[in-house]
Computed example of a mutant assay.
Amino acid sequence: MHNSAKNHKLTVDPTSISTVTEPNHHSSTLVYDIRDSRYLNITGRCTLRCQFCPKHNGSKQVHQYELSLSAQVKPEDIIPLLGKVTSFDEYVFCGYGEPTLNLHTLIVVATHIKAAGGNVRANTDGLGNLFHRRNILPELAHCVDSLSISLNANTEALYIQHCKPKLKGAYEALLEFISLAPDYIGQVQVSAINGLENVNIEQCRQLVEQRGCEFKQRELDVVG
């Protein structure tokens, strides 16, 4: 899960919440509201195993909402739950997985939102190109207004230590994605967490700003 989805005060319309029944009879939230944005939880899969992520520390919840998923979410699961597009400042693809791993659903749903006049943001670990073995940014450019990318380390060694990527060459691919993103997406913000052991926040800022993106400093265990 990327940091923007934790520890906010949720204001949720109960009629907007969709649940799917898990084998253990727990329910998973597909959409949930934070302030004036609607968040879309489309996959439980991830390319990272971040040691600071709650799902690797015994929790798969945002407040009372269970975000674990047993299957990839399809466009037809999400589109009926979007509500009135103009009622929200933006729709954010962000759950407890990496949304670009369910790229088809992301693009179909985002295109639907854009056609209805809405704004779309995707929170990503920036490894979509590496995972799909192609540049997915041209596809995202048609339907995504802004990207929030997690950097979280100023060196490859620290990235491996804290984020434990599943794919080889992840850090280099992430930096390349950050460099490419402004050529395709209007707003690109890249974050790093202050408080991770040995991570130099100012060096993270330099890496981001050198690549033409906005830097956002987050604090460990404090989100928002």
Rank of each mutant, 00 (worst) to 15 (best):
N123W: 10
R38Y: 05
P75I: 02
I193A: 00
K114C: 01
H132G: 10
N154C: 09
E214H: 11
E22T: 12
P138S: 12
E202Q: 13
T86G: 06
S191I: 04
L69R: 06
G169Y: 07
A122P: 00
I79Y: 12
E176A: 14
G118H: 09
P75A: 04
P23I: 12
K55D: 00
I113T: 01
Q72C: 00
E22Y: 13
R45F: 11
G117H: 09
Q161T: 13
K168T: 14
C50T: 04
G44Q: 11
I107T: 12
Q203R: 13
V188D: 07
V108M: 02
Y96T: 07
T21I: 15
Y159C: 04
E90T: 03
D77I: 11
S150I: 12
L67K: 04
I160G: 00
A141K: 06
V223L: 01
D36T: 09
I193F: 02
Q187P: 00
G97T: 12
R38E: 04
C204D: 11
T47S: 15
K166N: 06
I17W: 06
L174Q: 05
A157S: 13
D33H: 05
S4V: 05
E172R: 14
I79D: 10
K60E: 07
G95H: 10
L220P: 00
N198P: 00
N200K: 15
G97H: 11
N129R: 09
Q64K: 14
N7P: 00
I178K: 07
P54S: 05
T111W: 00
T21Q: 14
